[in-house]
Simulated scan of single mutants.
Amino acid sequence: MTKPARASILVAEDEESLREALKLNLELEGYEVTTAETGPGVMKMVKNEYFDLIILDIMLPEMDGITVCETIRMQHNDVPIMFLSARNTSADRVEGLKKGGDDYMTKPFNLEELLLRVDKLITKNKKIREPQSIGDTYEFDGCKIDFSAHECIDKSGAAQELSKKEAALLKLLVEHEGEVVSREQILQIVWGYNVYPTTRTIDNFILNFRKYFEIDSRNPTHFHSIRGIGYKFTK
């Protein structure tokens, strides 16, 4: 089975034997696996780490899986979520999917089928909409960025040196012109982090970009922060 390298999965299950069995079998498939036993435990981990998939038991203690899923979606986090449930009525399945779940499996389940579904969900999630193809340089509004040389010509015509990370973030935003790129995507693609640094890390880069490219950095026309979601570049 072909999987994205080092895909990270959170298994939220309060039944110890099932939790450990899932962890073992997923690790044998090459995934990084973190486990949680309670609803609040899931929320804490999702806040601090990036996951490619969450396998979520519906009957979690302290906060049930449906509520956990709803809360995650309210935070604009679109991580794929697969529900596991002892309930197998169509009404329960519909409820889980309506609240933001991507898949729903009932217990007991076939392990091979679960692994196939896990692989499909992760692969689908990795296929972010194909970005525009841009070259090594990009010009807009009298400014110019040279991604390979790590430098730019700012709004006043002065040359500015860019760090490697600044150039990478600029390229990512420009490739997705007009689209909101989530903080999670930025940290994974530009920084390659699983555990997040603070949001300020990206905010400081955006402030630099406004200083270089915006006529009025307080009222930006190119580099936008979308509160609670991510960042967007518009030409």
Rank of each mutant, 00 (worst) to 15 (best):
A21Y: 03
L170K: 00
N208T: 08
M45N: 04
L170D: 01
H222K: 02
A36Y: 00
L97T: 14
E161G: 02
Y50T: 08
G39K: 04
L22V: 10
T2Y: 13
L60N: 06
S17D: 09
V46S: 00
L84A: 05
E27Q: 12
I153D: 06
P80R: 07
Y193H: 01
A86T: 15
S156L: 09
T201Q: 07
T2F: 06
K47P: 04
C69Q: 01
T89R: 05
P40D: 01
V174T: 01
S17Y: 01
F213N: 01
M82L: 15
I206K: 05
H150C: 13
G41R: 00
E179H: 13
I145R: 03
T2C: 07
S225V: 14
E62T: 15
Y193A: 12
N77A: 09
G96D: 01
F209V: 03
L172P: 06
G101N: 10
E177V: 11
F83G: 07
T123V: 15
F213I: 00
G39S: 07
I202T: 06
M59Q: 12
T89L: 03
K47H: 12
K211N: 13
H224R: 08
T234A: 04
L60C: 07
H224C: 00
A158P: 01
V195Q: 14
I215P: 02
M63A: 05
L18D: 13
Y193C: 10
E179T: 00
R87C: 05
V195S: 08
L56K: 10
D92Q: 06
K171R: 14
T67M: 14
K99Y: 04
L97E: 09
L53V: 08
G41K: 01
S8N: 09
V79P: 12
K235F: 10
E32N: 15
R227K: 11
N77R: 04
N25D: 10
I202F: 05
H222T: 04
Y104G: 02
V42R: 05
V181K: 03
V79H: 15
E49I: 11
I134W: 02
E139R: 00
G100W: 06
E27V: 14
N88K: 12
G230T: 10
T221E: 14
A149V: 03
P197T: 09
K127I: 04
E177C: 04
E95V: 07
K47M: 08
A21N: 13
K232E: 06
E161S: 15
A86G: 13
A91N: 14
P61S: 15
R6E: 11
E177T: 11
F223P: 11
T137S: 13
T67C: 03
R117N: 14
G192D: 08
K232A: 12
N110Q: 12
L170I: 06
I81C: 09
A7G: 14
S225K: 12
I189M: 09
L53F: 09
V79I: 13
I215F: 14
H222V: 00
L22D: 05
Y138E: 04
E13K: 10
I229Q: 11
E13M: 06
S133Q: 08
P108Q: 06
K23C: 07
E95T: 14
H222F: 03
L114Y: 02
D57A: 04
P108T: 02
A12N: 04
K144I: 03
A91P: 07
R73Q: 10
H76F: 11
L187K: 06
T35W: 04
L115F: 02
L18R: 09
G157P: 01
E27I: 15
